[in-house]
């Protein structure tokens, strides 16, 4: 199957918070199956950019087209887009009052209208995939941070999205839990999932990414394959950032 157009296309996207311009003329296109890593200093707009892709933030200028649907205020289109775009947050954001199983079933039932039994099956399938099927009846607070984040990934997968956005998925985790989450993400990448990943895990970027994007002050400063990006960065800001982040 060849797609005539990229899965995600951002053209000249601007985003303002009051007078502050968080995104400046962002152009980005992501094809099906691509794995993109976005990095940059804090406040550079990387989270804002991926949050615009499922409209958690509304962009103020330019166009964003997801799988042929342009993001506007049209609710019907928005729901269609959100079904296709999964998201994993820095702070997991599991529903605290529901068991793990219900966390995974809720949106399937309400949004996909999946029958209960089938939803449960799907949920169990993905829990096995992230290697914690035995936690199904527990509440989020009873799990470690790493386990919670794996549940959050499973929850996104249950919706069978075309693409998953990761917003710093490992930065809220204790060091010893980072790997268990990265392993799941690497696994997903191997299976051909389209991923856009905001992260500072440069090892992950090197081994998995098709492209690395560096953002600073609301702009995409550099965009390259990992090999080139890490070994021969062109822009001075990229060099400075890499020297700071890789020096320790």
């Amino acid at each position: 199957m060849t797609s005539p157009q990229p899965l995600i296309q951002m053209q000249n996207v601007d985003k303002y918070f009051g007078n502050f311009q968080a995104l400046k003329k962002i152009n980005l296109s992501v094809s099906k199956g691509e794995r993109i890593v976005v990095c940059g200093p804090s406040g550079s707009g990387k989270s804002t950019m991926i949050r615009c892709i499922n409209r958690l933030e509304k962009h103020n200028g330019g166009t964003i087209i997801i799988d042929g649907i342009e993001l506007t205020d049209d609710l019907k289109d928005l729901n269609a887009v959100r079904r296709e775009v999964g998201m994993v947050f820095q702070s997991f954001n599991l529903f605290p009052h529901m068991t793990i199983m219900n966390n995974l079933m809720l949106a399937q039932k309400l949004v996909r209208k999946t029958p209960k039994a089938e939803a449960r099956e799907v949920a169990m399938h993905y829990l096995e995939r992230v290697k914690i099927p035995e936690q199904a009846e527990k509440y989020p607070i009873q799990l470690s941070g790493g386990q919670q984040q794996r549940v959050a990934i499973a929850r996104a997968l249950c919706m069978k999205p075309e693409v998953i956005l990761f917003d710093e998925p490992t930065s809220a985790l204790d060091p010893e839990m980072i790997n268990e989450v990265l392993e799941v993400m690497v696994d997903l990448a191997r299976d051909g999932m389209t991923m856009i990943c905001v992260t500072h895990e440069m090892g992950f970027a090197r081994s998995v990414a098709d492209r690395v994007i560096f953002m600073d002050a609301g702009e995409i400063v550099e965009e390259a394959e990992p090999e080139t990006f890490f070994n021969a960065p062109k822009n001075d800001r990229t060099k400075l950032f890499l020297s700071q982040i890789l020096s320790h």
Partner: peptide, 15 residues
């Protein structure tokens, strides 16, 4: 109510 939890619901397509 934690804003993040509501955002997660929004991202999953809940109205």
């Amino acid at each position: 109510v934690d804003r993040g939890v509501l955002e997660a619901g929004e991202a999953l397509g809940l109205s």
